[in-house]
Write a protein that binds this DNA or RNA. Structure first.
Length: 113
RNA sequence: UUAGAGUAAGCGGGCGAUCGCCUCGAAUUUACUUCGGGGAGGAAAGUCCGGACUUCGCAUUUUGUUUAUUUAUAAACAAAUAUGAUAGUGGGUAACGCCCACCGGCCAUCUUUUACGGGAUGAGCAAGGGAAAGUGCCACAGAGACCAUACUAAUUCUGGAAAUUUAUUGACAGAAUCAAAAGUGAAAAGUGGCUGGAUGUCCUUCGGGGCUACCGGCUUCGGCCUUCGGUGACGAAGAUGCCGUGGUAAACCCUAUCAGAAGCAAGAGCAAACUAACUCGUCCGCCUCGGCGGAUUAGUUAGACAAAGUAGCUCGCUCGAGCCCGUUAGCAAUGGUGGGCCUAGAUAAAUGAUCGCUAGAACAGAAUCCGGCUUACGGCUGCGCUAAUAAC
RNA sequence: GCCGCGGUGGCGGAACUGGUAGACGCGCUGGACUUAAAAUCCAGUUGUAGCGAUACAGUGCGGGUUCGAUUCCCGCCCGCGGCA
């Protein structure tokens, strides 16, 4: 899991990522990336109740995605805020499929060193 | 032994490998290093009730009492009023619409009676105050849905205006007949049953028997009454003197009891505190008496500033109507008492991710904290019940 | 965390104080007009079974009150919206 300093926890940071960030969308999720002025990668995840009404399902998805980013963290460029927006299509995918999709999205935005 | 329905007393995966998160404590080289402890539920859910806690208010008008003084205001208390909720009785509780026990009702089984009915059992059901305070509603059908037998016609009788031929016609009014209360309807005005006389009618083996207008007698049920038992709901017995009142209050309503409002984004503290606009309060001045101008406090919105202008940081925040074991009062819910224990505290929100073995593993994720209710739930255990089979 | 509103044929939307559920519009089906179509007009249309008469089910779901429930009461499910 991610350390506290690797999370986005301010409404303003989310707004900035939405307004000025680079985008990459698939039918499973969307990814926003923006410079944050800090020497860290920070992650925020959005899952609405429209994805699933069960809190258990939403929490599990968040934990799995955090785990994926955690393992990729040493290979990424520091100083970026990442925001992931999850859509309901992702419920059909297993852990391995989600992992490869997110890694390819990170490569598209050229976030690797 | 197997299966089933039920109840809810207990449980709600385990082991291993790799990589991580939150929090508390200790150590050091003060590094987001190392070591050690702890880390979701029986429903954490729905938000349907009830409390604790916090802030605001003492709300509305009227009445009464007390206190204070500036003698018409302020404060406190009580009653009435409005709105909402609850509804057999007693108990439990911080409180409840919850829980326990009991009472009455319904249902099932057994039993008893000529019959209505009575008695027993149930780990069966159940929102169960008042319909002889009042109002409303009861479709269709029906005379009538609560002033019971309407309205119209016909016939008869009685009274009788008026007309004339003075004993006839009879407007009009009243009563009866028609008219059986069958039938209609969810419901029909006297509550169910037994029985005597009597009328009519049918059957008859001529002994009698069936049905029945009407007039009684006894009894059941319910109400008024008396006595006894029970804290009480109520029960039992007596007295036969009087009475028989449709349903619906999950229609208005009446009666009794209870309730101030908002919610941890409650609320408290800390740092910073510049400008503009608006709103409310207070003070000063002017006056056309209602506004204008100025100052100040609080709040809201927008902008500026390394950051924040607020969902910032700290507290509230987890020791509590707490859990476990024993003992004691009580039918029980539950209470008293002795000993032991400390058992999540996050905040874009930790309590895990991936893989392997096991057995295929449900419903589901704390957010101030508790007590209930309701709903979801694969499997295992406990308990009594029902059915089948086997043995004795 | 707190608080409202709604759910009726294929679709929108009625049904007033409980009394024959589905008015009205759109759509759909069949027919007329046309060489053919559109437009227009006529008829039908909740579902299932049936040639039909008719029967059964039916207002999100499950109970209850009542002679009788779309309507009243209780508990759930789903959808939409608001406040801090």
């Amino acid at each position: 899991m991610l350390n506290k300093s690797n999370r986005i926890n301010k409404d303003k940071d989310f707004d900035r990522a939405f307004k000025t960030g680079q985008s990459f969308y698939t039918k499973d999720f969307g990814l926003k990336a923006v410079d944050n002025g800090v020497d860290k990668i920070r992650l925020g995840i959005l899952i609405s109740t429209k994805v699933s009404k069960k809190a258990v399902v939403r929490n599990k998805l968040k934990r799995q995605i955090k785990e994926i980013v955690q393992t990729e963290l040493p290979a990424l460029k520091p100083g970026k805020d990442l925001v992931l927006i999850i859509f309901s299509q992702i419920l059909d995918k297993n852990f391995g499929e989600i992992k490869s999709l997110i890694i390819s999205a990170l490569k598209k935005l050229k976030l690797y060193i």
